[in-house]
Simulated assay, not measured.
Amino acid sequence: MNDEQLSRTLQSVGQACFVRFFGEFSSNALSREDIVEKLRAETDYTEGSCISRTGHARSIINAGRAEAALKIIVSSDSPRVSEKTRKDALQWIQKINS
């Protein structure tokens, strides 16, 4: 997955969603269905959107680009990315590298 594909795929997940559910997306213990159900319960996303977001998030992680995606989020100046989301992304980066 090159940088352009990463950017597009991350956009499909949503930066805040990627960070908020990063633990679930990156967990080998949870099935796709488990994650979709959690997203449905905790957000107002449609089932199709939850399936899509989960697939895209896992494709980023499986391609070994999770840290790069999190760094994009940390450096984002989009008004849709909150300071809390940036801080949480930074914490995930620290966990990945520890």
Rank of each mutant, 00 (worst) to 15 (best):
G14H: 00
V36L: 03
R40S: 07
A66P: 06
S78D: 15
S27Y: 11
S27P: 11
R20F: 05
V81H: 10
D34Y: 11
I72Y: 15
V81R: 02
E4R: 13
E33G: 04
R86C: 09
E47K: 13
D3N: 13
A41H: 09
G64M: 10
L10W: 02
T9Q: 12
L30N: 13
S52P: 00
L6R: 10
E67N: 12
G64C: 07
A63V: 03
A68R: 15
T54L: 05
R8N: 14
K87C: 04
Q94L: 13
G64S: 07
H56K: 11
Y45P: 01
E47F: 08
A69H: 01
Q91M: 08
Y45V: 03
E47W: 04
L70N: 02
E83Q: 14
F22Y: 15
A16H: 06
I73N: 09
S27R: 12
T46K: 14
A68D: 15
T54D: 01
V13A: 13
T85Q: 04
A68P: 02
G64I: 08
S75P: 01
A16M: 01
Q5K: 13
R20S: 01
Q11E: 14
F25M: 02
E37L: 09
D88E: 13
E67A: 14
L90Q: 15
W92S: 04
R65E: 10
L70Q: 00
L30Q: 05
K84R: 15
Y45D: 05
K38W: 03
A57E: 00
F22I: 03
S98D: 06
I60V: 03
A69G: 03
T43V: 05
F25Y: 07
V36E: 12
E33Q: 11
L10F: 00
N97E: 14
S27H: 06
G23P: 05
L39T: 09
S59A: 09
E4S: 12
N97P: 00
E42Q: 11
I51R: 14
R65T: 01
